[in-house]
Design a protein around this nucleic acid. Structure first.
Lengths: 329, 329
DNA sequence: TTGTAGGCGTTATCAT
DNA sequence: ATGATAACGCCTACAA
């Protein structure tokens, strides 16, 4: 591997000049040409580690998520990498499965100068371990630190879901969801749903377990038991698409039809892949916008000296799939 | 940020000793203690860039895939990151959307010492740009270089698909798929399917377009037109799950029912997330095994001096979903 | 405009 | 077992 010295020697100039040329400073045209020729001849590439050692910029960012193996997170990852590329910055991914240890490991890595910043979706108490100097964007949950915080309009999403179920003719509304021990933004999906139901005096019931007293499957099965006994027109809003899919599967095993017997609206509205057709009616998060905003804000934070953290809320929208009837209003 | 010098000073030892201690070499117990105390006191973390500069090991690997926003690739990414962690190695991801330029950019990055190796799924001609010294694992497609090559048993998968459709009672079999310009392993899915049909004298027809003369949607619609006119018992094998989903959507828009009117088997069998229930009957690739093998082989290649490239084939299996009837044999 | 030299934080060699 | 010191490849004053 050729070094800057080799280039300098071949071009008959000093390393200083080569360095300047590489970094876009002014050099005489003729020397520039000399240098470029040498670079081409030697197939020279600057060693990023030596650069990083001097400059403390690594042009890489770590994304901390529960798991990339999930439509929402994989879409987010896709877009974040895409926008990061505009800054010539690489994306390192960290699947934590909500494992605090692993999160800390990556934060340590960041402290070792390995990355310029962090974008995190984490539902454990990682806040206190993040050093103040390190640029952080947190999605869906506010760090106690003064970091910028980006989230979808979960509350509004809950309202819309209730409204859409109502419009589609459901007379009995249900919320099904699960919360982690650490408070996070998704609880607002429930709040919006509840408030809307209260406001319009709708019949509704909430199945919400915080933590994991029962396994999701058990809790879901219990929920399905109750649904099965009802004969009104049922509409269910689940806190995530994944739970919606699980519910659909459970109901189908019991011979119940969606949307004929039960209408379902999920939350996320992300698709397994860019081309996957929409099946599930859902409240769609604007993943693209979240990713774009995250990257922009992170870059601001990295580049600006004095950065004022913000809270940014991204709108959501309802998408009509095949698990609810079209609105009849 | 404390450096190794600060630690040495505080512990009253030389930097050499600190370095040894950090790297697990032998030091006297008492000095070890001294050093550890200093490290704790200063909250010291080695600077990875300085380390990389010396050792030329970066403990990072880049994964080149078309897009992480896809069930198969996101599952693969998940497992690769998981196994890489056992080697304390980070994963950088590169979504190429099959863009040669972007692939090259990441390979350049690798040449800059930024990564220790590459795992790639790429359907463009990237081979010749990979320098010989760089460890590479290629999945699904053999590089011309002498790199290790890992793939599922696509041929067998094609055979199984035909057989399962036959067993499930289909009398007219179809293959639907799309190939990229560059030859790759997935063509064996078709071959296995064809050979099986020939061997057992089954009625079958192939819809396969190489390159992209028509858009996938158009080609699919054309295919659905033809299916719609038939009245025999139809079974379709698609080259990917994604195409299967698109077909199901297309058929549903035409009022055709799966599996009652048409049975469908996809290929990949990967799920959107770990908990997503299985709906599609499919030939499942053992993504976990592919990931594990890729990482192990890559690490061998990185660590061993003389490495002999291998071709590794991972078995596939049929999974029964709800888009085919249970076998009646 | 260009060249020189010191230093970034580590590791590794060589004495001690 | 430990300490001193020369690299690793690059950037950046400072000097010329």
């Amino acid at each position: 591997m050729a070094t800057i010295k080799d280039v300098a020697k071949l071009a008959n100039v000093s390393v200083g000049s080569v360095s300047k040329y590489i970094n876009g400073h002014k050099v005489k045209d003729t020397t520039a040409e000399l240098i470029q020729n040498a670079i081409d001849a030697l197939n020279y590439e600057p060693n990023i580690y030596a650069q990083g050692l001097k400059t403390n910029r690594t042009f890489s960012v770590v994304l901390i998520i529960p798991t990339v193996w999930d439509p929402f997170y994989s879409e987010l990852t896709y877009y974040i990498e895409k926008y990061l590329e505009e800054y010539d910055t690489k994306l390192i991914i960290c699947n934590t499965k909500n494992d605090l240890d692993k999160e800390l490991k990556f934060i340590t890595m960041a402290r070792q100068n390995k990355v310029d910043g962090i974008i995190a979706i984490t539902y454990s108490n990682v806040d206190e371990h993040v050093p103040d100097e390190l640029p952080v964007i947190s999605i869906d949950r506010s760090f106690s630190k003064h970091s910028t915080f980006i989230t979808s309009d979960n509350y509004k999403g809950g309202e819309i879901a209730a409204q859409k179920l109502q419009d589609a003719g459901s007379s009995e509304l249900f919320y099904f969801g699960q919360g982690s021990k650490i408070e996070n933004e998704t609880i607002n999906r429930l709040k919006g749903f509840q408030d809307y139901c209260e406001q319009y005096s709708l019949n509704y019931k909430v199945y919400y377990q915080k933590g994991r007293r029962h396994s999701t499957a058990d809790y879901l099965s219990e929920f399905a038991d109750d649904l099965q006994e009802m004969d009104q027109s049922i509409g269910v809003f689940t806190d995530t698409d994944t739970h919606a899919w699980m519910l659909i599967d459970e109901l189908s095993n019991r011979g119940l039809k969606v949307p004929e017997d039960i209408q379902i609206i999920g939350f996320d509205g992300s698709k397994s892949s860019q081309q996957t057709p929409t099946f599930l009616s859902s409240i769609r998060q604007n993943v693209n916008a979240i990713a774009k905003e995250s990257v922009q804000q992170l870059m601001l934070q990295i580049e600006e000296d004095h950065f004022v953290p913000k809270k940014i809320i991204i709108p959501v929208e309802f998408i009509q799939g095949k698990t609810t009837f079209p609105s009849n209003v």
